[in-house]
């Protein structure tokens, strides 16, 4: 169980994480969404014990993570950088992690290496970006941690490799109830992979919910009305976005399918249709509400 409570982290004058509180149940796969600079990587580094929170607490299995060897043995952090391993071979990485993780599984390591066909004796700077990622992920999985934190770890992988790595992660999860915290800008990936998501913006949590709940909560309506509709016409519904193209009005609203269709029904639409949104669309509309959208480009 991961418990993040009122966590604050500041880089000099900038507050990167501002009073974040998130609980992540054991065995789940948690997706961290957020704009650039939202605080995802900082939060993952605090989870890994790299950064010490200025205030608040980061606990895993009830114990503070920072400078706690016992807890750190249970987790593995894969950062968005791989350059630090450039002068190591995959064989050397295996030795390196084997020294520090008692749970390191040689057989698993070999099996994974065999699947992706990575050379053990070549230095990582000779690898492609994707191969480097594979190498680090393989090490992370072979360490058999109870908690695996991935910071944009699948970026740069080709679709096939992406599927293979995801499969490795899913196998590990299934195999031993590993908890994964996963940050990515690829929302489809989170959509496919995570059972719970948290959206961060400017260091604050926008929402932290089950993925199904998120997806079921935000609905896109396309309808034809005999007049222009404003958010004020839908009391009790949180309207994220409205748009009119010709006679068709599009409404993106939060509140669940039933509640939204009931509210829209009261406006007697001539035509009514409900469309389920992808996570990416939800992300865009949620961020738009927060003032983070591409409209700046139009100005």
């Amino acid at each position: 169980m991961i418990e993040i409570k009122d966590c604050v982290m500041r880089f000099y004058d900038v507050e990167a994480v501002s009073g974040v509180s998130i609980d992540i149940p054991e065995g789940s796969c948690y997706g961290l969404l957020g704009s650039n600079g939202a605080g995802k990587s900082t939060l993952l580094r605090m989870l890994s014990g790299v950064y010490r929170p200025l205030s608040g607490s980061v606990k895993i299995d009830g114990e503070t993570v920072y400078d706690n060897v016992k807890i750190k043995e249970k987790l593995f952090f894969i950062s968005d950088e791989t350059v630090q391993f450039s002068d190591m071979t995959l064989g050397a990485m295996r030795k390196y992690y084997k020294m520090f993780y008692k749970s390191f599984d040689d057989a698993l390591f070999e099996r994974l290496v065999k699947i992706v066909e990575l050379p053990l004796d070549k230095k990582l700077h000779e690898f492609s970006k994707g191969m480097k990622r594979q190498a680090v992920v393989i090490c992370g999985i072979a360490c058999r941690p109870k908690y695996l934190f991935l910071d944009e770890a699948l970026d740069g992988l080709d679709p096939t490799m992406r599927i293979m790595v995801k499969k490795m992660l899913i196998d590990a999860m299934m195999d031993r109830e590993m908890t994964i915290v996963f940050s990515s800008h690829n929302l489809n990936e989170i959509d496919e992979f995570c059972d719970r998501v948290g959206l961060l913006h400017n260091g604050k949590v926008v929402f932290d919910r089950d993925l199904d709940n998120v997806k079921g909560d935000v609905i896109k309506i396309q309808a034809v009305f005999d007049r222009d509709i404003t958010p004020e016409d839908l009391p009790g519904i949180e309207v994220l976005h409205t748009e009119k193209t010709g006679s068709v009005t599009y409404i993106i609203a939060r509140g669940g399918s039933e509640k939204i269709s009931e509210a829209v029904g009261k406006l007697s639409p001539k035509m009514y249709d409900e469309i389920r949104l992808t996570l990416e669309e939800i992300f865009i509309y949620e961020m738009e509400v927060l003032g983070y959208d591409s409209s700046a480009l139009d100005k």
Binding site: R45, G49, V50, V69, K72, E73, F76, E81, F100
Partner: peptide, 16 residues
């Protein structure tokens, strides 16, 4: 900075 994640996330205490 690139060694921060690599070194500090290891299960080794600061004193050690």
């Amino acid at each position: 900075k690139k060694y921060i994640d690599m070194d500090l996330s290891l299960p080794v205490s600061d004193n050690t």
